[in-house]
Nucleic acid binder design. Sequence first.
DNA 1: CGATATCTTGAGGGCGATCAAACGAAGTGG
DNA 2: CCACTTCGTTTGATCGCCCTCAAGATATCG
Lengths: 245, 245
Amino acid sequence: MTAFSPNLMARPDCAACPIRHRAVCARCEADELAQLEKIKIYRSWKAGETILFDGDPMDFVGSVVTGCAMLTRRLEDGRSQMVGLLMPSDFLGRPGRSTAPYEVSAATDLTLCMFRRAPFEKLLVEVPHIRDRLLEMSLDELDAAREWMVLLGRKTAREKVATLLLLVLRRSSLPISGVARADLPITREAMASYLGLTIETVSRQMSRLRADGVITLEGLRKVSAPDLEALALAAGEDSDGATIA
Amino acid sequence: MTAFSPNLMARPDCAACPIRHRAVCARCEADELAQLEKIKIYRSWKAGETILFDGDPMDFVGSVVTGCAMLTRRLEDGRSQMVGLLMPSDFLGRPGRSTAPYEVSAATDLTLCMFRRAPFEKLLVEVPHIRDRLLEMSLDELDAAREWMVLLGRKTAREKVATLLLLVLRRSSLPISGVARADLPITREAMASYLGLTIETVSRQMSRLRADGVITLEGLRKVSAPDLEALALAAGEDSDGATIA
DNA sequence: CGATATCTTGAGGGCGATCAAACGAAGTGG
DNA sequence: CCACTTCGTTTGATCGCCCTCAAGATATCG
């Protein structure tokens, strides 16, 4: 039993929330948090479950509390491209739109802190700290999407895979350490979907990176990189290692 | 001499502005417009000129009034990917960031309605109509970027070219007419940069679309499509023809 | 009319997709 | 405990789309 068990209560205490200082509520004062607390509700999904289909009515917005969510768009003939990978604290949904423009699914077991859209939009008007944070997060997402456009349009398969591993390692492992390690939140299929590749190509490039000593794999899901600089090099990143978002 | 000649005056009258009802100022009342008018300044560039290099200080934001601007990101080895094509009324820059995360250049002769960042950020706090519109436009841009990710990751060269032509024809030609026509605002090289292709592939696919009767070309820059449905089909679009943004 | 940039077309090669099969892990039931 | 299934992953062989390199055509401008 942990101190924060979202699955066991509808409205855990915001003060103990793991994403309290990074989510859309990051800048809220205690009284503002109380307003959010009144309209929030937790809900969880199992890995692999679909939360919404493209075109479904979407009468809520919310934050990823734990786990990972995927945003996927499909072409008519079945081709699909993941257009977003939401990690804890990321925001899902958009005020002012009532229909999902992509499919939303749970990459891992997932818990969302959800707000019905109408009352949330009301808070957006009344609480500057929420509104300002949402604008900032939206602009960050836009930058991240543009960064991903470079990957999709110009990077090689090896660079694509290395870039994704670097992203996961940077975001979910301890910030500074000799060896970075993390659990891959997504399957090879989802990796392929996000990278604009096939599953076979992803698998081959993972094997090559491992053979080259850039990464180490334990089981299928645990990755580590003895030298993040080497991984960044394989990712074709700017030398300073700076990322936009 | 037209009624609205941005090149000839520093602060043309907002009331006569061609983008008055679509830009970041779209929702402003007369008094709010007056506040913007006080801090705005026009500036123009010739086609091909670079406005900002990646990493340059960016102490302004603004709207495209006439012409087209390109946002381009580069990898170290010279590969480059256009990550945004700004048309009249689109917003350039971001409050809260002082450095350009991409190169900005003029695709065509271009005029911007610019605001220094500091006073604009002040208005963002004081004028809800500007702030709300900026959030809306940012979310639209995010949707458009994600749509483009599908193109970059999953579409064929033919579909990519058709999609871009469709975008240009839909946005710059008369909305409903038997034959849609427009001037291409960008060179083949810029098209290639935006589509994640080479210039040769773009050229070949243009020729194929012409040979197939999907488009007609007069000179290098004038395109028309006798049947937008056929072009949409070539673009691999959803049957309902709906686009996100 | 020549100079230069831009665009088109052609020939050949490589990277990633496709098709196919083997492998490994996790779960089920006898 | 072990066959058996199932699903995800890895590896192999081949194909084709788009890139690369190269030359020629067309537009633009002095």
